[in-house]
């Protein structure tokens, strides 16, 4: 304790030259840095190395260096990996393109509806956000039971209304729609409360000035609300793209990636499920690591692209 106190007094001479090495700050950051090193910095390198190996954790004697083979397999048609990898990646990109607009527009509409001085709006806000606190496993299981063609809730009411009752989980494109609907149900509330907070931060005087100038409500929305929301919208779009890319539990529990396709791979198999299967079911961890690095690059490019597009516009 005495040494600590002495070191402290040394560092307190701010601006002065310190002769002694001040180790106290390092004591503060060390616990985090140790875990960061082991589980973030080191794995980054380890992942790169593993991706250059044929690596099976169950048969370590068979592990061997294969150079860029795992990557080449993903980019050469005719390999086992080529069709299933691209199927899953394209599925995921389709899901991102379908889900992100919905997950921006619907929450924005909900936030606009709630951004009024209605009595009871806090209750509505609380209800809309509630699904977000559930585990993806609960959400997936719930979706599984609701979209079941046998005894499922949705088809019961569709039948009642005399409407077409698709085999939601086992036919296309309905399997995607089920996953999409469940995801919108689960995460809209999150985007809504972020947007609502941002809406409440827009100064009322802007709207007043616009009204005085004779702007109608659409013009106020277009020329005040949207520009004022731009930074938050960028944030929402980027985080939603990333979380849609990470789609995993809903298809795993609802469709298990199916229905199966003739060309190999499942119609609703997302890339995360493919990486999981490659690494932990097929036990090809090198190939799985290579896939995850390719996917990570795509995700980073996607985010960067979004960032640029939405930032530079005006």
């Amino acid at each position: 304790m005495a040494t600590i106190a002495r070191a402290t007094s040394a560092s307190r001479r701010e601006g002065g030259q310190r002769k002694r090495f001040d180790f106290v700050p390092y004591l503060f950051i060390l616990p985090h840095l140790v875990f960061f090193g082991i589980f973030a910095a080191f794995p980054f390198l380890l992942g790169l190395v593993i991706s250059l190996f044929e690596y099976d954790i169950l048969r370590p004697e068979a592990n061997r260096f294969v150079g860029t083979q795992n990557y080449l397999n993903l980019f050469t048609s005719g390999t086992v990996e080529f069709p299933i990898f691209w199927n899953a990646l394209i599925n995921t990109i389709e899901f991102v393109l379908m889900s992100v607009p919905l997950l921006v527009v619907i929450p924005l509409a909900m936030a606009l509806l709630l951004n009024t001085n209605l009595t009871g709006k806090n209750l509505y806000r609380a209800i809309y956000f509630a699904p977000w606190v559930l585990s993806s496993a609960v959400v997936g299981l719930l979706g599984f039971w609701i979209f079941q063609s046998q005894g499922g809730l949705l088809n019961y009411y569709l039948k009642d209304l005399g409407l077409f009752q698709p085999r939601w989980l086992s036919s296309m494109p309905w399997a995607w729609y089920s996953i999409l609907l469940v995801t919108v149900w689960w995460t809209s509330g999150f985007n809504m409360i972020i947007l609502l907070a941002a809406l409440q931060g827009i100064s009322a005087s802007l709207y007043e000035a616009a009204s005085i100038d004779g702007a109608n409500s659409w013009q106020r929305f277009r020329y005040i609300t949207i520009p004022q929301l731009r930074p938050v919208l960028v944030f929402i779009i980027i985080t939603t793209v990333i979380s849609s890319f990470n789609l995993f539990a809903q298809p795993m529990l609802m469709t298990n990636g199916g229905p199966a396709q003739s060309g190999g791979g499942g119609s609703t198999e997302p890339i995360m499920l493919r990486i999981y299967t490659e690494g932990f079911v097929r036990n090809r961890m090198g190939s799985s690591a290579a896939m995850s690095f390719v996917v990570a690059s795509v995700m980073v490019m996607f985010s960067y692209f979004n960032f640029r597009v939405f930032r530079t516009k005006e």
Binding site: F36, I38, F39, A40, A41, F42, P43, F44, L46, G47, I50, I57, I242, F245, N246, M272, I275, Y276, G279, F280, M285, S288, A289, S292, F293, V295, A296, M299, V300, S303
Partner: peptide, 20 residues
């Protein structure tokens, strides 16, 4: 350096962390 990793997708760490 820490902040940079905020932008890295978690999927990259799946296999290596499992092996660690």
């Amino acid at each position: 350096f820490l902040l940079m990793t905020l932008f890295l997708p978690g999927v990259m760490f799946l296999i290596p962390n499992f092996l660690t």
